[in-house]
Each structure stands twice: as structure tokens, then as C-alpha cells.
Design a protein around this nucleic acid. Structure first.
Lengths: 228, 228
DNA sequence: TCCATATTTCGATGATAGTCGAATTATTTA
DNA sequence: TAAATAATTCGACTATCATCGAAATATGGA
């Protein structure tokens, strides 16, 4: 006898490799036009259209039309979380080309996990914040300290902005590449955005991998003693 | 171009309704013999065998042989978490029988989420612990207070036992029926076990729904002012 | 207005995967 | 030891689903 929600409904949407590829692209937290998603998933536009319609129907993705362009994005953070959870338990793929090795390394170094930083950089960021005493990991949970509040203020991340966010404020997110936790929640997101503003990090073409700039290396080192 | 882990690998295992049903049964955190899983999923034993072999191959489930019986269980808490995440974003099923309504209500009231209590009771438990000041939800994270430590000591849950657990100590788990958080982690698990010892809760037949005993209603009311 | 581009819609095809009957294997029980 | 029970293995069948070619629709630009 089967009662309660059925895990297979959403899982069957993710189970197709082309759809999984599309969703993985969308894990960068941005909207992408249908044509780009088709290209990224290595399928024809009509196939992508078919898949996107399926995901749109059950609110896994949302759609925004701009002229001839249809921009799709992941519907909400819960969907993104489910995806990241799945990625964390998925086996690493076999490497088939030098190009894939490079991109894999780039992803492992730093990438978007929907709206915050993941990968080695994301984990290092969290470790540094702990080392500096700006956040504490007590009873396996995370709090911002007084010093941390001062730090955020100086770093132009006013705490009230962070706290106003409705969702999870500070929490850990299991990182598929590091197998440790990186910083997520509103704080993770605000830091992510701030690093962009300062041009300490930038997006790489055609991937959700993130590149750190030389200014970023310098800044993260001076500010948080992060060496990369 | 596709790099990094592929979400479709694990998702494709969950995408089959029969396998999803099996995994949902296994969310009660216990081992179940293959025959029972076949019955619960409403498939023939040979079909169940085929599905279980697939899941065993990629370490979604693990196997323990006892004589003619093959007991399967969910491999680890990460798999369980991925499942619960998927369930939280899955649409509620259409109800087709009175029996299903009843079981659905039972699941909503209280059920196992792998190794801790979920449902209305699970959420109420967490709320009560907060109301009593035994845990605090600060900056959206959870800590045990001094009063909470005393409470746990008196309730025969020594803190060192809780802290010895390697995994998450105290955290929140999004509940698919309540759309709020219930208590998870080592503390959630220890309370779950303690309620069993005291016979405040008991398992129901053929479902992962949990029944509260009259002793449990009394005990939870006296101890934590929980009214049900 | 016509052409180019982005995207969707439709239909047919081929591959895949879940299912069960039959048979076999493994273990327990009388 | 034979019979019963639990479970697996094998093979054939059928239904489903992803794919692409073709065509149609929607929008932008010259």
C-alpha cells in the first residue's frame, strides 16, 4: 500500500541525463535561454523544449519570456537543495577528455551552488570565518559572533539585510566535491554577491565554475588569511 | 559539455515507482526482508529482487543475510536525506481509498524519517523543546541550553552519548507533511529511541507511521506540555 | 515587408527498462 | 531426507519515453 508523497515523481524528472544536465547548468542560480540549455545538454532545441515543458509543468523550473527568448531558471531553493543532495551522493563520472579534467578541476575549486559559493573555495571560506572567530560552530550549528557582526558591517554586509531574508540565515551545505560543508543560507549568498561586486570572483564561460581574480586572492588573503 | 557528478544516476534509481515505494518503506530506518518489500511495493518477489540488486550495486541499500532471509536497509543517512528532500518537494498524491486517507493521516501525525520522529508530533516536539527553553533557535540554528542539558540528563539521555555521534548533532529537517522543521540529528534520534523505551510511542503494522500510546500522551504532556 | 533567429509543436522511430512466468538456488523445517 | 519457503536468475514481452526531422509560431532586425 502506498501513501504519502511519491519520491519517484520528481526523481523521474531528474533521471533523464539531458534534463539532469540542464538542471546542473541552472544550479548557477541564473536564468538561461532555452537555446543555450539545449547546447549545454548537447541536444536539439526541440528536445530541450520538450524537457523544459515537462519541468515547467511541475514547477521544477520557472519561465520568463523576453522577446523571442525564453529564460528558464530553477524554481526555488528547495529544488536546488534536492539537486545538490542528489549530487552529493552521486558517483564521480569517468573522465573522457582533457577538457573535462580541466572543467572538473574548475568546478572543484569553486562553483555556484545555486546562490552561494561551493567547492574548495567555499569550504575554505567557511573554515576561515570560523578560524577568525566570526562564526562559531557550536553543537554542530553555526552562529555569528560579535566579531563577526563587526566584520560584516565593515565588509558592507549589514546584518539586518542578512536577517531580513526569509529563508535559512546561516547554515551548512554539504559540498559534493569537498565532502565537507560550505557556507550556505543568506550569509553565504550575501558574501557571494559581495565578492562579485568587489570583482574578487567572476563567472567562467559556459560553466558554473567560478574563477578567482588576482584581486580576489589578495583580498581574501588580507581579509581572511585565505591562501589559494 | 558535462562535467562533475551526474544527478541522473541516483535519480534514475528512485524514479521507478516500485523502487520509490521500497525506499519509502525503508525510511523507517529498519531492515526489511525482500519478500516484505515486494509485498509493500505490490510487485512480485522476482521483480523486487531485480530492483534491490540495482540499488545494492550502487550502494543505495545494504544487505544482511540471515538464513533464507535477505534483509535490506537504506545504506546511510545521506541517502535518507536525499530521499526526504525529494519527498519534501513532491506533490501530494491523489487519494483513492478510505484506507489511504487513514494511513496518510497516520503518516502526517507521526512517522519515522529514517532515524528520528517526523510529522506533526516531530514538529510539536521541537516546538516544545524551544518553548521550554531546552533548545534555542538562534540565527535560525539550534543550540542546547543549560536547562536543556539538565533536562536531557534527567531524561536519561546523557549529553556525552549524544555528542559522541559522529554525524550532525542537532539540526532541523524539513518535514514534508508539516512544511516546517522537525528535530533531527543525534538528539532527534536519541529522543526517538528513548520514547520507544518508555513505550510512549510504538510502530504501526505495515507502515512507517508511528502511534502514540496513552502513556505517551500523558508523559509528553507532563514532561513537555505537549497536547495532542 | 521580408528574412533571420529563437522556440515550440507534432509525429514517428528506436531504445530502454520494468514486469512476470518459469526455473533454479539456498536455507529451514518436519 | 524430502518438502516447504525465501529469494534469485533468466528470458521474453510490452509499454514508455527520449530523440530528431519537419513544420509552425513568435519575435527582432534590416
Amino acid at each position: 500500500m502506498r501513501s504519502g508523497p511519491d519520491a519517484s515523481t520528481i526523481a523521474s524528472l531528474i533521471s533523464d541525463p539531458s534534463r539532469a544536465a540542464i538542471l546542473t547548468v541552472l544550479m548557477d542560480g541564473r536564468s538561461h535561454p532555452a537555446g543555450d540549455l539545449a547546447y549545454a545538454a548537447n541536444i536539439k532545441p526541440q528536445t530541450a523544449s520538450f524537457h523544459l515543458a515537462k519541468m515547467l509543468e511541475v514547477n521544477v523550473v520557472s519561465l520568463e519570456k523576453q522577446g523571442r527568448h525564453r529564460y528558464y531558471r530553477i524554481e526555488n531553493i528547495e529544488i536546488a537543495k534536492a539537486l545538490e543532495t542528489l549530487l552529493a551522493i552521486s558517483p564521480q563520472p569517468k573522465v573522457k577528455s582533457f577538457k573535462q579534467v580541466t572543467e572538473n578541476e574548475n568546478l572543484r575549486f569553486a562553483r555556484t551552488c545555486y546562490d552561494h559559493l561551493a567547492g574548495k573555495l567555499g569550504v575554505k571560506l567557511m573554515d576561515a570565518l570560523v578560524d577568525k572567530g566570526y562564526i562559531i560552530e557550536e553543537s554542530n550549528e553555526i552562529l555569528i559572533t560579535k566579531e563577526g557582526e563587526i566584520f560584516l558591517e565593515l565588509f558592507d554586509i549589514p546584518l539586518d539585510i542578512v536577517r531580513k531574508k526569509r529563508r535559512s540565515f546561516v547554515h551548512k551545505c554539504l559540498d559534493w566535491s569537498e565532502r565537507r560543508h560550505h557556507l550556505a543560507g543568506a550569509l553565504g549568498h550575501e558574501l557571494f554577491e559581495r565578492f562579485f561586486e568587489l570583482q574578487w570572483i567572476e563567472r567562467m564561460e559556459k560553466t558554473r565554475a567560478i574563477r578567482i581574480t588576482s584581486a580576489g586572492r589578495k583580498g581574501l588573503n588580507e581579509l581572511l588569511s585565505i591562501t589559494l
